[in-house]
Nucleic acid binder design. Sequence first.
DNA 1: CGTAGTTTTGAGTTTTGTCAATAACCGTGG
DNA 2: CCACGGTTATTGACAAAACTCAAAACTACG
Lengths: 249, 249
Amino acid sequence: MTDSENDSIQPSAEIPELCQECTARHRGICGALRPDELTHLNKISKQKTFAEGLTLMADQQEAPFFANVLEGVVKLSKTLPDGRQQIVGLQFAPDFVGRPFQSESHLFVETASKVKLCTIPRKGFEQMLGDIPSLQERLFQQTLVELDESRQWLVALGRKTASERVAGFLHMIALHMPNNKESPSQGDKNTTSFDLPLTRSDMADFMGLTIETVSRQLSKLKKRNIVSISHNRRIVIHDMELLEKTSRE
Amino acid sequence: MTDSENDSIQPSAEIPELCQECTARHRGICGALRPDELTHLNKISKQKTFAEGLTLMADQQEAPFFANVLEGVVKLSKTLPDGRQQIVGLQFAPDFVGRPFQSESHLFVETASKVKLCTIPRKGFEQMLGDIPSLQERLFQQTLVELDESRQWLVALGRKTASERVAGFLHMIALHMPNNKESPSQGDKNTTSFDLPLTRSDMADFMGLTIETVSRQLSKLKKRNIVSISHNRRIVIHDMELLEKTSRE
DNA sequence: CGTAGTTTTGAGTTTTGTCAATAACCGTGG
DNA sequence: CCACGGTTATTGACAAAACTCAAAACTACG
């Protein structure tokens, strides 16, 4: 809407208004761009909001766009012929979604929650990727981080118990979610609260468990007074340290 | 030894002798280099052979070099405080070993078998990476492939049974190993033989199982006449198709 | 309130892990 | 070439973890 305001005035110096407050501006891939490059990206990209449970890109399909996650959680999953499913990645703001150098994804990309994306058309982005080495390097670095995360989760699935996986999952989510702290002791890093962005079914598919096992493990954490859960999604973590410890052994 | 023969004659046109027959020359990262660049890489790199069971880079340590795998298998693993171990990746020729943009590895890198590497000193390689965009792009692409493989194995660990994992593992190894076919029917793609590059213990650590479970599943595959095993390591796959099918359901 | 969908809990089964004993393999040296 | 000892792999019996199926409780929403 207001995308084109700066167009003819100072094409190479100002930062587009929309990008000023953007979560992807600094920590995301846009941080690799000069003002004029950012302006160009801003011109071809478009913010869009998606409801929970939508498929953004389907397995074996040409992915029409790349995107930065601005809000919410995007899940990457794989499905076996008999219907078993595994979530192989979760993307939070300001992560980048999409795979360069390959038009078709072999993943399902779906919204796990309500999601706001900054979408970028495939062609335009690939052009920029070829022209701007710093952008490619940034994307390369983010890919390396994703590889690290994937391998970290591989350890959880291969060697950790259900109890450790659930604790580790909650801990990881706690670090990624906007932290709605309500306790008076603001500086207390040992307690946090947030809304779970995933259903029990998604949690199970991420952790390689059944929903019943996930539920039982959550109940155990409640009994140990490490977390409280209300309305299914609302989580209060009373003891982050103990949660983290539980995820390690 | 013969590394420096071409040095002063035609520094920018000829392909170094050692690289001529190298497995990394075409499919590996060296394929992204021009002859003069390859000559430079050849000058700073060095072929080395390592015995089975050696640690090339340890967790939290500064990795002294990058390398191309020329022969054998390198395993990447992570260890939990209590000793549980998970192999998070296996590298075959002509894979690249090492993580750019980060001096310390969070992995153990060990030789799973006897291994031949073309090692490249950290500094020199990072310099080349900065100077040669095509090299960075090649490495980026290989990283994306590794990410795909890692996610594929995530599905196995999260959702597949022991039987499926073992079949899938054998199938994967069969595709990577130099295929010592001995049967008269050369063109028969349904049968293969090779030496396992991993011990039962490594196999278990890769598949997130115990050695006993691995052994029991191998025995089942023998009973079903899908494979034969002799001398612990020598594998003959009689029916690749059935093996692959077993890995999928 | 009542209903549909989700989550939790319970009871019983299956798969995989643990521990222990046996067997196969490899290298060495007689 | 065979015997020996150490290592690695297989097999068996049992235990534990997680799964399946079914029922009850909770939640959201009209």
